[in-house]
């Protein structure tokens, strides 16, 4: 009931599922001035999708997802600025592999624990990554950030332009790929196993499911997707700062996902969209006080809409059906 998307549900695409892509393309043609914001929203959607996969479906609580996001961002940045590898596809691949490996290594440790211990360990992993990046100044640029990132045209054809047209479409393609992969996963038996682990891991052990292996697989995969999101951030900004590894992106991401709705796939679309647009709008109207607006929005959602914004729309639709 709370999680309408899953193995038991009808896995055919509904017409509403095409809606985000239609909107995204419409934005490209109708709002050319907002493409840089659009690219940022898309990057965060991919990042939120990766978190939803482990938090919403597998029930792994994390406050350190930025470790993979940041690693992906730095791998792309270092490849370009220090090693002269400017091909965006290659950068993307390396970022995904590096973040996936880090996911595998840290997941092997983190996933042996539960609850608060797990939360603290994920936080610790991110903090260690941050400090490494801060200290390794010759490689990462330290607190000054890593500049001098150049990205070659995609497939040698599409140059990253100042208006962010290429960046926007490039982000859109990758988000579409990520969405398609994750959607396939959660409707598969593997996805069903994850939901089972989230709901009752003792019982999953009892039926003989390899719980730890399943969790490690999904954690690695999620880390790799977060790494791709990080690489996107670097490619669209051509700059990497220490803040990508900080606590803020992890925390903000969690806020976005909760705002949209956890464990329902499209919550990861709605959350970043609402959060970043509200942030952009409020920051322009009230540069000094915009955090207040964001805080107010969160309080309202937490008090009145436990399922996030999509939870509200579910409730509204249910009520309308009852009346009809």
């Amino acid at each position: 009931m709370n999680h309408p998307v899953g193995y038991n549900a009808d896995h055919r695409l509904r017409w509403t599922e095409w809606l985000p892509w239609v909107v995204a393309l419409a934005v490209f043609f109708l709002l050319p001035d907002y493409l840089s914001l659009g690219a940022r929203v898309l990057t965060y959607i991919l990042f939120a999708l990766s978190l939803d996969l482990i938090l919403g479906y597998a029930g792994i609580i994390t406050l350190g997802h930025a470790a993979f996001f940041g690693l992906g961002a730095y791998v792309t940045g270092i490849l370009s600025a220090k090693l002269g590898v400017n091909d965006p596809l290659l950068q993307m691949l390396c970022s995904a592999c590096a973040a996936g490996l880090l996911g595998l290594a840290t997941g092997a440790l983190v996933l042996r624990t539960h609850g608060l211990t797990q939360l603290m360990l994920t936080l610790a992993v991110a903090a260690v990554c941050l400090e490494v990046a801060n200290k390794a100044t010759p490689v990462t640029g330290g607190a000054d950030g890593l500049s001098g990132v150049t990205v070659a045209p995609i497939l040698g054809l599409f140059r990253f332009d100042m208006y962010g047209r290429t960046a926007y479409l490039w982000c859109l393609v990758l988000v579409f790929g990520g969405w398609w992969l994750i959607r396939r996963l959660i409707y598969s038996p593997f996805g069903a196993a994850l939901t089972g682990i989230r709901e009752n891991s003792v019982r999953m052990h009892a039926v003989g499911a390899p719980v730890y292996k399943r969790l490690l697989t999904v954690y690695t995969l999620s880390a790799a997707i977060a790494g791709i999101a990080g690489a996107l951030l670097t490619q669209t900004n051509q700059f990497v700062g220490l803040n990508v590894l900080g606590f803020e992106p992890s925390g903000e991401l969690l806020v976005m996902l909760i705002l949209g709705g956890v464990g329902r796939l499209y919550g990861a679309f709605v959350g970043p969209l609402v959060f970043l647009i509200a942030q952009d709008f409020l920051a322009r109207q009230f540069p000094e006080y915009w955090y207040f607006g964001i805080g107010l929005m969160l309080v309202v959602v937490v008090l009145f809409a436990r399922g996030g914004i999509l939870g509200i729309s579910d409730a509204v639709i249910a009520r309308m059906r009852r009346k009809a």
């Binding site: 840089s36 914001l37 940022r40 607190a143 900004n237 051509q238 700059f239 700062g241 220490l242 803040n243």
Partner: peptide, 12 residues
Amino acid sequence: ANGDVAKRIAQE
């Protein structure tokens, strides 16, 4: 000290 935010708002 957020380079990516600074870059985006400069672009806007």
